[in-house]
Each structure stands twice: as structure tokens, then as C-alpha cells.
Design a protein around this nucleic acid. Sequence first.
DNA 1: AAGTGGTCTAGACCACTAT
DNA 2: TAGTGGTCTAGACCACTTT
Lengths: 246, 246
Amino acid sequence: MSPKPLIDRTSYEPAYSQLVNIIRRQIAQGEFPPGGRLPSESQLCKQHGVSPMTVRRAINLLVEQGVVDTAQGKGTFVKPLELGMFSFQLNELQDIFRDREKTRVKLLEVRIVTADQVIAQRLSVSEGDRVIYIGRLISSSDEPLLHHQQYLIYDPSLPIVESEMDVTSLGGLLSGSGETSFKKGLLSIGVTSLGAREAAYLRGEPGSPAFRLEHTFFDFNDRRVSWGWFTFRGDRFNISTRVGLW
Amino acid sequence: MSPKPLIDRTSYEPAYSQLVNIIRRQIAQGEFPPGGRLPSESQLCKQHGVSPMTVRRAINLLVEQGVVDTAQGKGTFVKPLELGMFSFQLNELQDIFRDREKTRVKLLEVRIVTADQVIAQRLSVSEGDRVIYIGRLISSSDEPLLHHQQYLIYDPSLPIVESEMDVTSLGGLLSGSGETSFKKGLLSIGVTSLGAREAAYLRGEPGSPAFRLEHTFFDFNDRRVSWGWFTFRGDRFNISTRVGLW
DNA sequence: AAGTGGTCTAGACCACTAT
DNA sequence: TAGTGGTCTAGACCACTTT
């Protein structure tokens, strides 16, 4: 028998977490090869001296991490790497807004415009209805990073909300510290070429490739309230992720 | 008191899952506003007639879903929408390889080349070492979608493995059905402009914006074995996600 | 001191799969 | 029938926050 790493009951790290790390290490060291079967849950209970619920919790975490798959009545199996499942996060976007010292939001343009066909469809209003257009430039340490354009539902009974126009509404949305009143949203990442104006704003080459992050947000009554997109230079942002066992 | 939706013990849906949906619905309907506090766990036990562990499990799931935040000693609070946390998945890439009927992989080029500085760094070999270059074109329903280029460690003691060159190695990686022997990997999404050759392969405009998905894979001994990238037209792929409460 | 979330136990029962 | 994963109980104890 190999000297199994045991659960340290005096540690501040909970038992289920220790068990996750133990099993991950065993898989990483090839003790359980891809496609292979893990010991049964009752065996793991005995081996590590923990209760069934604790083993279950550890295995559930490994399933969420994409490390193993469970099959009722058959067992728990080590999952090979899958590419399509990998998820990417916009961490750098979040980081920009984390330190408010460096981040500046410059209001480029605010207008009331009439909705064309595209805007009308995205905001679920009628063509010709009036909507608010806002153009902004977000900089960090005097380096322009994001160009943001969005259309908002225009409610004539309300004043144009200032809070929608300053850094708070954007920063809150991106960093989570704010008080966004959106219930849900659709996000989509695309590619585009910098137009002349965007290139000037972002100090990039016109025609050079850039990311386009499109968003649609809904309020708590499921009404569309905002449609717009961020444009940012591809050479300024890193959308990356680690997969497998590190 | 509002007539609370109760747990249906006869349902096939487990209690913890029903509880997740009940709480999500209450939040979506504004019963618990963003930033507001949920009932305590012991209260939820009484209200829904379940044990503490079941409530805990439901709340843990809501935390993972990004719907609520917990604070020990204080309570559980409804989380406002955050943008930076949103994760994107490459579902369409996965779909391409799911139906093997339509998917074709055409081998464009296989060569043994000497590593330049960039390749040497990415594969952790010495400049001038020999590595394998493989260029492939992946099509679905006779529509070229992905251009894939990669460099592999060349081990002269082994024949050039055929399985690395056909659809299986790629399809397995992307769909998860394969037997990939990679332990871990680094993935990164970037933007680029289609070069003349890539544009011809992918039937796109030269200079038009495209995605570039770069990958580095490691074997179970933590040695780098593969570095390469997929190029695909931005107007052919949808990298999108939903956030919040749907 | 009282209330909150966080962990854990030692079983129970169920559904599914293999033999 | 035996073994597997999946759910759930009714408590216990702990760490933390508020009053």
C-alpha cells in the first residue's frame, strides 16, 4: 500500500477541501489515469476516516471542477481534458475598475436619438422612438482602454439619470461593488476592426483588430433597458484560462 | 404572510434543487432585492421543512451561481450583477466536433522544422531543436471554419504519431469523447487579422478581424508537448453568455 | 449572550448497474 | 444480490458578528 496522505484534523483547511486536494494530487501523479475509476465513496470514507457526506462534498467539487464524472451505479471516473467546456473570464476588465484611483471615465457624447431598426429591435421599442445614446472612454493611468457606447430606454417622465453617466454605473457593474438594479443580461464577445474614430480614441491603428463586448441588460420586470458594446484593443487585453490539473 | 411555495416531496426533483429554484424565483420577483438579506438558514429550515444540510446545499449552489454572497456571522445577501465575473464558453467549437458526420479535418502540411526563439520558448526546448509543425483545416458541411497550426515536441525515438494528425486527436480534445493524455493546458483568446493564406483557407476577406485561440498543453510529467493556435472568422462564431436570473 | 454561516457525523433510504 | 452513486436527516460543534 502506498502511504496515503491523511486528513489533518488540526488544520484550518476543512476536511472536504483537503480531500479534494488529495484526490487531485493522486490524479495528477497518474495514480488514477484519465478514464480510470476512483475508489468507491464508501472506500474513500474508510481510507480517510471521514463520513459519507464529507466524501460526497469533495466529489461534487471535483465534478464541478471538471476533474471527474460520476455515473450512478457504476462509479466515479477521471475525466480527460475537454476544450469546449473551458470557460473564460474577463478578469482584466474587472481589475481596471477595482482601483478607482487610476480609472477615469470621460463622457464623450450624450444625445437623444430616434431609434433605427436595429436599436428598436435590441431595446424592444418602436422604430422612431426616442432613446438615449451615451459614448464614453474609460482610461487607466491615462491610457485609453475601453470605448463604450450604449443606448438606453428614454423615459420622458424621468430626468436623464446622472448616475448612468458617471463611473459608478460602469464600475459597479464591472467590479460588483455597485448597486446595479439589473436582473439579467446577455453578453457576447466578437471581433471587429477599429474605425477611424475608435482608433483615435484608443490610440490604435485604424483597421487593426479589436474585441467587441456587446451587452443587453434587463430590469426586474424583464424589460430591456440597455443595449451597447465595449470596444477594446486586442493587444491590450488578455482573455485566458487554465485547464486541467495545476 | 405570502403563500410560500412548498417543497414537493413526491417530485423527482430533489429538495435542494427545488429550494434553489424557489429562492431564485423570490429574488427574481423582487421579494429579496439586490443587497438585501435572505432569511437565516435556520429560518429557511423551518419555512420549508428541510434539514440544515439541505438548506446549506441550496445556498452553496446559489453562491456558485453568483446569485448570493454569504458572510459568516452576518447572513446571506443578494448579489448585484457583476460583469468581470462572467464566464464564456466555447460551446460552438464543441458542437462542431460533436457530429462527426459533418466534420472534416484536412491535413494541409506536416513538416519537421527547427525551432526559432518563439517556438523554443513556448515548448521549452533549445533554439535550433527540431520540432513538428502541423497545419490543418477543419470544415463542417464543406464550410471551412477553423485553421489550426501547432508545434509538437519531436521525439526521434518515436515515429511521428499518426493519431496526432487526424480528426480524433482534435475532436477528442474538443468534444471530450477522446482519450487525451494531457494533464493541463493554457488557453488564451485573442484577435488578429486574416493573412492572405488564412483568408484563402477560411474564405474570408484578407485583413478582416478574426479570433485566435492559442493553446499550450502539458503531459503528466508537466512537460510542454504542444503549442499552437486556432484561427477562425469572427462572423462565424458566437461566444456569448447569459448572466443574472433567467 | 444570541444569532449567523461553516463543517461534520453516522447513519438511513433510494435509484441505478453489474453479476 | 451486492455494490455504486444520490439524497436527506437531526442533530453537534465551531468561528464569527452583532447587541
